[in-house]
Design a protein around this nucleic acid. Sequence first.
DNA 1: CATAGTATGTAGTATATAGTACACATACAG
DNA 2: CTGTATGTGTACTATATACTACATACTATG
Lengths: 119, 119
Amino acid sequence: MTTTFGSFVRKKREKLRKANRDFSLRQVAARIGVEPSYLSKIERGDHKAYLTEEKIRLLAGELGEDPDVLLALSGKVSRDVQEIIRRRPELFAQLIRDLKEMPDHAVLRIAREVRDGKW
Amino acid sequence: MTTTFGSFVRKKREKLRKANRDFSLRQVAARIGVEPSYLSKIERGDHKAYLTEEKIRLLAGELGEDPDVLLALSGKVSRDVQEIIRRRPELFAQLIRDLKEMPDHAVLRIAREVRDGKW
DNA sequence: CATAGTATGTAGTATATAGTACACATACAG
DNA sequence: CTGTATGTGTACTATATACTACATACTATG
């Protein structure tokens, strides 16, 4: 059940490959700009193999997955989100800690009301 | 006006030193567990000198500053906050982006209502 | 003025991060 | 059975991160 970055990518890529021959490891590696051997290592979960945020974003685009989810599986938080927190650290760090235990629907409700300009 | 991590730390440390001799660079360095030459580099803004999150937290304790603020000045976001985001990336990444332009008081209001159990 | 304390400059180190290069074995298609 | 595509193993590399060690120079005080 422990979905890792590698296993997640491999699963999704192999699924896409059934419908489209262009999703071989080699071709996907070429499109995101890494050597096939390196993507192979990553999909197999080699502990010394990581992708940069840029390549993870390209990979997410290829696989039709949410970049934030792939970044999270890779142990990262999007640069732009980090930047927002760093500009007002007391404010955001504390808010996020306060939201830690909130159920999804409560967090979603806040997000929706923020977007609706209720604040 | 561009407050850097180094200048911020130096300023605060020198202020504390006027009241208490124990805030020399050497002594503070010893208390947080780095060599004085290294803390010197950091205070002078050497681009190759960084502290780990742990040492930044110790330094914040010494200086009586908010660890999240020092981490932010050092270009970092607290591990525990990153962890919270990584557990529910779609939810939190999007919420934070939505809050990007919100004025402080609006974000504070949300935080307060969350703490008061209004959600 | 001696010396203790202070900051700094230079050089070197270990580990993590983010890869390339290329050989190899197998499968698959014409 | 020939050539091409596929995934993988091994070795190597460059840069960033996070420091230590030590020599040097200033400066403040008893």
